[in-house]
Design a binder for these strands. Sequence first.
DNA 1: CAGTCAAACTTTGTATAAAAAGTTTTTATT
DNA 2: AATAAAAACTTTTTATACAAAGTTTGACTG
Lengths: 219, 219
Amino acid sequence: MPKKATAQETALKSVRKMLASGKLKPGQQIIQDALASRLGVSRVPVREALKTLQAEGRVIHDPHRGYFVAELNAEDLSEIYHLRSILEDEAIRIGVPKATPADVVAIKGFHDEGLAAAAKGDVNQMATLNRKFHMAIYRLCNEERLITMIENLWDSLDAYRVLFLTDSSNRERTNDDHAQMIQAVKQKDVKESLKIQSAHREHALKTIKHLLSAFAQTD
Amino acid sequence: MPKKATAQETALKSVRKMLASGKLKPGQQIIQDALASRLGVSRVPVREALKTLQAEGRVIHDPHRGYFVAELNAEDLSEIYHLRSILEDEAIRIGVPKATPADVVAIKGFHDEGLAAAAKGDVNQMATLNRKFHMAIYRLCNEERLITMIENLWDSLDAYRVLFLTDSSNRERTNDDHAQMIQAVKQKDVKESLKIQSAHREHALKTIKHLLSAFAQTD
DNA sequence: CAGTCAAACTTTGTATAAAAAGTTTTTATT
DNA sequence: AATAAAAACTTTTTATACAAAGTTTGACTG
């Protein structure tokens, strides 16, 4: 049986979910007491969960003032996407040549599930599967630390990803790109994989920046 | 005036120092109570400091068993050096072309101080200045997140760096490499900078791996 | 004598409460 | 009415205490 998780572990999971779903919004203060009683635990494990998120850059800690959900400006977004391109390109260079037919089937599986979610209009599920799809490709490189870093970067963008997938044209484009990507991986074509991924990212960055500046005006 | 640090902040600093100096050794359990009374604080802020280090991968947390100093095997070392090369190369590509004469003077300053420390045989001071030297170069890229990631990777290697600098031939070689590097940066020669840095890292990795396997036999 | 169980012990995990810092509101003064 | 000081309030930070889990020791059993 899976042994019981500690309060801090469940707290961390919950807060991650709240960040991803937008229940906690960028810039917002996280009142420890409110969060703790919401989760039915004391403030101590909540604080430990927040410390982890702070180290990952997802929340900002201002001593004696508290924890705030990290806010990304256009420059931050550029930096994160830049880091993603550096690390993801490397993961592809190492991993794609090693892709087995079974790997391709697994990757295609996530794509197919994603299409189903898209048909049902379940944006949250789409986001989850989109991530699984891409991470399955990066995981081919088999370098644990590299993979973890890429995951952290994706985490930082969680709050902004929902924004992106809200637009149906983005959803369509995403699915098209994925289909192309599967072909490239299947053929172990590193160069083509890099090209598709890069275009995919650039489009997302541009769109999110655009949405962000539109959003900023209404503040 | 600089406002008073919180207990968790001072605890974090202290533990970092203990990890870097080898007072806390890889694999060793960190007894929270002992550490807390040593630092004159309660266990709560100590645990928060450890959470941060856990997120950075410098300690391992095993629920209900405790925190242990992270141990790196040969594979971990390879991965970390691999990540370093990816990120540091990028920092050089972006930063070196932007180096101003003032930057070069500052970088050379760390090198000169390092030579002085070497003459005095102060290995700890050498390690500190070695790091300042390299980070000053990486900082030229001006990408905050990229720099932070590189710093984290250097942190992970702290416990093993002392090992490396204990050998006088490594210290000499390090100083020679630095002198060459300063020339390359001064001339804004990206290609040459990359070459020197890469050789520098490869040498260190090989040496540390060698020392590690020699060390493992005595366990 | 090896293996298992239970009690004693150690260490971690979390709740609670008190202390410290920061923020807001109120009151007093010019 | 505007500003400054102080009081009230909120929230964070840390110490303490208790609960829970893991480890060790030693007695008992086959």
